[in-house]
Design a protein around this nucleic acid. Structure first.
Ligand code: MN
Ligand code: MN
Ligand code: ZN
Ligand code: ZN
Lengths: 148, 148
DNA sequence: GCATATATCGGAACAGTTCCTAATTAGTAA
DNA sequence: TTACTAATTAGGAACTGTTCCGATATATGC
């Protein structure tokens, strides 16, 4: 990422914070910068260790809180279903899933015009694909109809 | 699932076990049956509780061991990345991921002919889609070139 | 039935994440 | 600048899902 692109994103982050009445702490900015400029999808502990080099007293809790906050703000994303336990599927036929981000329910999705998906050619250079799955996330009917 | 379909799958399970020299224990069969006939993608604890109704002394460890064994055999699958911690992504632009099932590395995938994917119409009845992501799993270059 | 390699049980250990509380600090206004 | 206050943090305890471990039990082959 270019230096000015990072600056632009940091500025955007500050704006969002101001707009939402969130305090601009040193920790928050360092954590955001760390994830924003990283290319390798770090886990929380990796971020924690990196941040600690610049802010030696930072706590793991602060890292977690901030990461989820940034995620909620849409400034970063997560890979894989955030904070869920593993769920098993007795149906091994090719199909996809809709996961409700509120109640965690998992629905099968296998419409006729929506069969197994083909991996893109780009993949050849990355590795050997064993499974391709589509994960739709959102709010299920039941949850949508409930008062928050 | 039809009764005979379940029987067929159970028989297949027994065959695979025999072929691999794995013992056909009562626990294993009950656990497999439980997941095979379930429609709602249960987590390990849910399976544990169901199985306990039939085998009151079963241990949670046995349930976990058996579920992962069935998964390795390809007789059941998991929803979401199995046993991984959450990883964060500073890149919020629409793209997909290849996750190495051995080392856990995450690679970005965003070829030109492979943009954001559209959710199928079937989804309307299930819920409101917030994100659509493709997860490719397999073995990355580096891992593939290593002796197991 | 007997031998034995495998699998199970129960509980301790572990890892990742969240919670709790006292102390600190950013933002605001005098 | 200083004082005030609500938001935030650090540190450690607690929690949750999962795995490990050692003693016991059992499926399978002879
Ligand atoms: Mn399914
Ligand atoms: Mn990415
Ligand atoms: Zn829901
Ligand atoms: Zn790898």
């Amino acid at each position: 990422m270019h230096e000015d692109e990072l600056d632009r994103r940091l500025e955007h982050f500050k704006e969002v914070c101001r707009h939402e009445g969130l305090k601009l702490t040193h920790q928050r900015m360092v954590i955001f910068e760390e994830v924003a400029k990283s290319r390798d999808h770090p886990d929380a502990d990796t971020v924690f260790k990196s941040v600690r080099d610049k802010v030696p007293t930072v706590s793991l809790d602060t890292v977690y809180r901030t990461l989820w906050m940034l995620n909620a703000m849409g400034l970063i994303t997560t890979v894989g279903p955030p904070r869920e336990k593993v769920r098993f599927d007795g149906d091994v036929s090719p199909h996809h899933h809709f996961v409700c981000s509120r109640c965690g329910a998992v629905y099968d999705v296998h419409g006729p015009a929506f069969g197994p998906i083909q991996a893109p050619d780009e993949i050849e250079g990355i590795g050997q694909v064993e499974s391709v799955r589509l994960e739709l996330r959102g709010r299920c009917r039941r949850c949508a109809s409930q008062i928050e």
